[in-house]
C-alpha cells in the first residue's frame, strides 16, 4: 500500500519534471502573439525526434527552431511566411500536416478509398446472402434437408432411449 503510494508519487514527480524540462522561457507580452507562437510550435516537426512537434521536443535543434519561430513572430511575420521559412530549409517533412501533392496523394486519400472498397464488398456479401435466402430449394436440396432433420431428431432421441 505504502509502496504503491510511493510509486505513484515517484511517477508524478517524473511527469512533473519532464513537463518542467521542456523550457518555455519565451514569453510574449501580447497574448495574441503568444497564441500564434504556441500554435506554430504544434504545426512544426522536430527533425531529430521525428514524432514530436517543436512544442514537445527537448532536442537542441528544437530549442533553436523555437527560438527562430519566436524571433519571426516577434518580427510580425505572418504564419505562411514562417512556415515557408521552415519548409525552405527542412522540406515538407517539417510540417506535421503534409500538403496534398503527388507524393502524398495515397497518404491522404487511401483511407477513403479503402472505406469505399470495404462498403462495396460488404454490400456484395449482403446481396449474395439475401439472394440465397430468397431462392427456393430444389427438390434434391429439399430431400437432403429432410434427411438431415430426420437424422437430427433421431440423434437427439437416442440418449433417452
Amino acid at each position: 500500500m505504502c509502496k504503491g503510494a510511493r510509486g505513484w508519487a515517484g511517477l508524478l514527480l517524473l511527469v512533473a519534471s519532464l513537463a518542467y524540462a521542456i523550457d518555455r522561457p519565451l514569453n510574449f507580452g501580447d497574448p495574441a502573439q503568444q497564441a500564434r507562437y504556441e500554435a506554430l510550435l504544434h504545426e512544426l516537426r522536430c527533425l531529430v525526434c521525428q514524432n514530436q512537434t517543436l512544442a514537445d521536443s527537448e532536442a537542441d535543434l528544437a530549442q533553436d527552431l523555437r527560438g527562430e519561430v519566436y524571433r519571426m513572430v516577434s518580427a510580425q511575420m505572418d504564419d505562411p511566411a514562417i512556415i515557408a521559412f521552415m519548409v525552405k530549409r527542412y522540406g515538407d517533412f517539417v510540417l506535421y500536416r503534409p500538403p496534398v501533392q503527388r507524393t502524398t496523394v495515397s497518404l491522404w486519400y487511401a483511407p477513403a478509398f479503402l472505406l469505399v472498397i470495404m462498403v462495396l464488398v460488404w454490400r456484395r456479401v449482403q446481396q449474395a446472402s439475401a439472394l440465397a435466402l430468397q431462392t427456393p430449394l430444389t427438390a434434391q436440396e429439399q430431400a437432403r434437408l429432410a434427411s438431415i432433420m430426420a437424422s437430427g431428431t433421431a440423434a437427439s432421441k437416442t440418449p433417452e432411449a
Binding site: 527533425l47 521525428q50 519548409v87 525552405k88 530549409r89 527542412y90 522540406g91 515538407d92 517533412f93
Partner: peptide, 9 residues
C-alpha cells in the same frame, strides 16, 4: 531509413 529527410536545397 526513416531518419533520411530529402533536402529541399
Amino acid at each position: 531509413d526513416p531518419h533520411y529527410v530529402p533536402s529541399p536545397l
